[in-house]
Simulated assay, not measured.
Amino acid sequence: MMTYSWYVAKLQKHLPGVTFPGRWWDPINTMEKKTFSIEQFLKHNMHRPVFACIGLTEGDPSWERSFSRWPWGVCEQLVPVKTPFDPEKWAQKTLDLYNWSQPHDSFHPGSWERVANEEMWQARMKTAFFLFDLAENMEKEQQARLYELSYNLYCQIVDTQVDYPANWDKNLALAAERLLRSGGRGHGLDSLLSRSIYHFSHYLQREPTDPQSKAIRSIITHLKKERKKLRDRQKA
């Protein structure tokens, strides 16, 4: 709404504490004297939490220079890039945000209700996905810590549901496999192998046409071999 020239003029007085560094947000001509970029808006409002819901426009990536997005339910909190991130605290902080009760797959395919419902369901696992994605670019010890936290969150989410999005199976399987590769961090190796095998297999049952199905089947075969080796060693 800030892209409309009338928005700031009419709404500013009703939004105490919110600073608008110009007359309107122009994602393209951000250098115009009367306009502002999303980065400028965020910098002028760092005194308060700022959230973006359903994403940010791709037309103005200026915020990426100075801010990061941390998952917050269906939204994301925009924080200065230098803000220290404590994954355990953030996971705990966002754990009970979600109270969506509409059953999954409860609307007709193609309807806007189905799209909105899917958006809400996917929001439940945003923190787990965020931590997993963060782990992919970390060093070993920090990486293992994030994989474990992501895995634990995925387990909490999936284990409490009967019907859920198919990609949750794939994500949990990947988290288990990555944690396994990182040494397990105290989790039983057999348990991680079985988790990964089960959820990869369950995912393929639900999404047999996935373009990566061949690679996933190969991973399942490999994991089964590793589990057999592990069990054989335990018997010896």
Rank of each mutant, 00 (worst) to 15 (best):
E118V: 14
N29D: 08
A236F: 12
G188K: 03
L11T: 14
P208W: 04
C155F: 10
V162N: 00
A215V: 14
A176R: 09
S66D: 13
S182K: 07
D86S: 13
D210P: 08
R181Q: 12
A215I: 14
L97Q: 05
W6A: 15
L180G: 01
E32P: 01
H44Y: 05
T3R: 11
P87E: 08
T35N: 07
H108L: 14
K229I: 13
M120Q: 11
S191T: 14
S62E: 07
G59A: 13
S68A: 14
E148D: 03
H47M: 13
R206F: 06
W70C: 12
H14N: 13
R227K: 15
Q92V: 06
H44S: 08
R48W: 02
W70F: 14
F85W: 07
Y98V: 08
Q212M: 13
G73V: 03
C75W: 06
A175Q: 04
I38S: 01
L180Y: 13
F20I: 03
F67C: 03
F130M: 10
H104M: 11
L230R: 09
E64A: 13
H202Y: 01
Q156V: 02
Q142M: 09
A175K: 02
F67W: 02
D26C: 00
A128L: 02
A166T: 07
D232T: 14
S111K: 09
Q161F: 00
L180T: 00
D232P: 04
G73E: 03
P21E: 00
V158D: 07
E32R: 10
T19E: 13
D60H: 08
V8H: 06
L131W: 07
G183M: 01
E226L: 11
N29S: 10
L15H: 14
F51T: 01
Y203T: 08
S194E: 11
P80M: 11
V8K: 02
P84H: 11
M125G: 08
L189N: 03
G73R: 04
A176W: 04
R145L: 05
E58G: 15
K225W: 03
W90Q: 11
K89H: 15
G73C: 01
E76D: 15
Y98G: 09
I219R: 11
C155L: 12
D190S: 14
N171H: 04
D96F: 07
V18A: 10
E113G: 00
H187I: 05
V81M: 15
L78C: 06
D105E: 14
H108I: 14
A128S: 10
H14C: 11
S111C: 07
P49V: 13
H187M: 03
L189V: 09
W72V: 02
W121E: 05
L56R: 01
K235E: 08
D190Y: 04
C75F: 10
V74H: 03
P61C: 10
S191W: 12
N137C: 08
M46E: 15
M1C: 09
A52F: 11
I220N: 03
K43S: 07
L131G: 01
R206Q: 03
